[in-house]
Design a protein around this nucleic acid. Structure first.
Lengths: 189, 189
DNA sequence: GTCTATAGCGGGATAGAC
DNA sequence: GTCTATCCCGCTATAGAC
């Protein structure tokens, strides 16, 4: 134990957590080093530039979401239950007073290195596409009822989850639950 | 012209714009100075600490929103039209690829000086309260139709506007329009 | 792989001349 | 009010010993 992969993974985990806490410009290699009891030079060995670290966070998040999607299929859940599970992904951020990855990246977007900007677009695209398909299929089978296009509804749901997690920080943690309640009501047949 | 008030106002205007572009940790006194053709020391004369500048931005935004609310009353608009105007406030950010003030502050929240954190809470509270009242009254008069509590619906609408403006940066500027379309549909009787 | 040491830059902030 | 000059700090990143 504590071999290469462990340290590298610990750095990535902590950097991700700091990114969701404080934004890309709000944490430093020094923060990570202090928390792990190592020196900043060691982090540069694993991730030469902060850009590399940022890109790795997003790439892993995309892979993780795709695996999560597959695991849902294996559990044979109905559409409504899948939407619940999707909301639960965001709930875990809210419980730590963190924002979601998309929200963090998009808010800092103009200050991000270009490699991270590209990955940020890809990340948002993957989530939107997944939810759009879920909503369209679910409406066809009668699991959901909503007006307009499935794409628009997917945007509405993700952006309200994203926004309400942020708002949670300034409203005694009540906003996220409000948004989920209202989302659930608005798509129920 | 170009008296005290002008320079001070120009600094505040530019700082606000930079805040919505790049976040609180993404701009510096140097950025402002360069854009205005002055030196950073001059900015410190008007706003001794960056904290003072940040607080002033939020305080002005609150006053501006309250004036805006009053101006709506004088125009004798119906509830549905008022909601349109509210969405238009966010549209002006989207058109510049900026995020809204609430989204910027809430995402950076944990890195903000305490005085700014308090003002951030106040700002969100003012907007939420205003929209909650509009929705409740509008439902009573038949202008709106939505399930659940007016407070929850207000959270849903503001958080989706906030989130979709952020998402606009990574989705070819299509997200904000999607969200507004869907919000309009979801509350129409 | 991790360390010490350091380079090099940019940040916020202040003193004092004009 | 605005300037020059400067301080001190924290940041990313690199070189080279161990």
């Amino acid at each position: 134990m504590t071999d290469i992969r462990d340290t590298k993974k610990q750095i990535l985990d902590l950097a991700e957590s700091l990114l969701l806490d404080r934004g890309y410009n709000g944490f430093s290699y020094k923060d990570i080093a202090a928390a792990l009891g190592i020196k900043t030079a060691s982090i540069h060995y694993h991730y030469p530039r902060k850009t590399d670290l940022g890109v790795s966070i997003i790439e892993r998040a995309i892979r993780r979401f795709e695996k999560w999607g597959l695991s849902l299929e294996h559990r044979n859940l109905d559409s409504s239950r899948k939407l619940d599970e999707f909301c639960s992904l965001f709930k875990s951020f809210a419980s730590r007073q963190q924002v979601c990855l998309g929200g963090s990246l998009q808010t800092d977007f103009k200050t991000l290195p270009e490699e991270m900007q590209q990955k940020s677009c890809e990340f948002a695209s993957v989530l939107l596409q997944w939810l759009e398909v879920l909503l369209r299929d679910g409406r066809n089978t009668g699991a959901f009822r909503f007006p307009g296009e499935a794409r628009d509804e997917a945007v509405l749901i993700i952006s309200s989850l994203q926004g309400s997690i942020q708002m949670d920080r300034v409203t005694s943690r009540s906003s996220f639950r409000s948004a989920v309640r209202q989302i659930t009501l608005s798509v129920s047949p």
